[in-house]
Simulated scan of single mutants.
Amino acid sequence: MRPNCECCDRDLSPVADGVFICSFECTWCADCVQTFAQGACPNCGGSLQPRPTRAPHKLVSSPGSTTRVVSPGCREAVA
């Protein structure tokens, strides 16, 4: 589970609602998804689905990733 939106770099908690992923696990916040053409992933064109949350008790043994991913040019592509 990526810790941020790949477009705006907003922090995204592993238990947050309003987070979307594609089949490649590109990760986006709801605000950015609203700006994507046809609601498709700007990286691969795939459909975006709500990201499942991780049960808080599982975060102890299986925490989310700390590696941040930002897609260069995302803001310009949707502006």
Rank of each mutant, 00 (worst) to 15 (best):
D17T: 15
C5F: 00
D31Y: 13
N4P: 04
S13W: 10
S62K: 12
S62D: 07
M1N: 05
C32Q: 07
V33T: 00
R75E: 08
H57N: 14
C22Y: 04
S65M: 02
V78Q: 11
C7Q: 02
A16I: 05
Q34V: 09
H57W: 09
I21M: 06
S71R: 15
R51V: 11
S62Y: 14
T27Q: 12
A77S: 11
Q34T: 14
Q49H: 15
V69I: 14
D17G: 05
R2A: 07
F20H: 08
C41R: 06
D11S: 15
S62M: 11
H57F: 14
V78I: 15
E76S: 08
R54C: 12
T53F: 04
V69W: 03
C74P: 03
Q49V: 13
L48F: 09
V19H: 02
H57S: 03
E25V: 06
S61Q: 04
Q34E: 14
F20M: 01
C29A: 07
G18R: 06
T35W: 05
S13Q: 14
Q38E: 13
C74K: 04
A30C: 07
A55R: 05
A37M: 07
D31V: 12
L59E: 01
C5I: 12
T35I: 02
F20S: 01
D11R: 14
L12Q: 09
P50S: 04
C7Y: 04
P42M: 10
A55K: 13
K58G: 02
P56G: 03
F24E: 15
D31H: 12
A16M: 03
K58M: 14
A55S: 09
C26T: 03
A40D: 03
T66M: 06
F24R: 10
G46F: 02
R75K: 13
D9S: 12
F24K: 08
E76R: 11
P14H: 06
C32D: 09
